[in-house]
Design a protein around this nucleic acid. Structure first.
Lengths: 138, 138
DNA sequence: GTGTTTGCAAAGTGTTTGCAATTTA
DNA sequence: TAAATTGCAAACACTTTGCAAACAC
């Protein structure tokens, strides 16, 4: 029964990642790492920040999402040509994507079995393997 | 040993799909369905058309790709937020994507075994399952 | 002839960038 | 105080749209 301390948790995350703890990054980290896995776009996160009375520009949200992605705090997910999603779940897992609602959900990594992946050629390395289950409303 | 007849092949494809055979659609179909599987973006196909002295606007290339996708002559592949790829291989298969070169290649459908896919909820249907092996250069 | 398709240019969407002002360590 | 970060506005890449002219059937 651990008490959630979003502030210091967010601060620690930034520190561990070697990022300066600015007001904007702290606030965004608190919104993102609130205890449950989230899938956000820059637009959505910016909206949430404004709602929470956090003054931050959309440009900074983009910068921050990419920095968090680079240091491994987030993972960018490509399911829609036209917008970027960022996932706070950085463990190995897959996705189910509703093409109508544009809602993205996790599938546990050990729920799916994948076999027969091709060998990687010399001079190349595996970045990762994405399984995307695309669904739509009837 | 079958002789390839790109013209009538393309014409037949349009006819069967119920699309009027305009000069632009015929030319694009000939470029696309040349006998081997292709992955194109609108920009690339437009470039190829111009090279082949086919006068066609980029807007028409976009329209045509989407029409072909809708009638099942092509399949749109999402691997890059920011550009749309269209695949002339419409059989069940997967992809390997080089994040550096942005090159997209097919993986045979029966080469990969997938198990443990989640059940689809009521009111929804499976659109498809994409496996994307992402690689990068070392 | 009638409805479809095209091409242009303009608008739209999501994202990135240059740079001066501000903030962090 | 030196280096990093921010915010703005402008630029950007890709895609879609409105509409008059051209075309297919």
């Amino acid at each position: 029964m651990e008490k959630i301390r979003p502030y210091s948790q967010a601060l620690d995350r930034l520190r561990n990642a070697g990022l300066r703890s600015t007001r904007q990054r702290l606030a965004l980290a608190k919104l993102l790492f609130d205890g449950q896995n989230r899938h956000v776009t820059a637009e959505i996160l910016h909206g949430e920040a404004l709602e929470a009375s956090v003054r931050v520009s959309l440009a900074t949200v983009y910068n921050t999402l990419h920095q968090f992605n680079e240091v491994g705090l987030l993972r960018e997910i490509v399911v829609d040509s036209g917008r970027s999603y960022f996932d706070t779940n950085i463990s190995e897992h897959h996705h189910i994507y509703n093409e109508d609602t544009r809602e993205l959900m996790d599938i546990d990594g050990d729920q799916i079995d994948l076999a027969g992946l091709p060998a990687i050629e010399a001079g190349q390395e595996l970045s990762r393997v994405d399984v995307i289950v695309r669904i739509k409303n009837i």
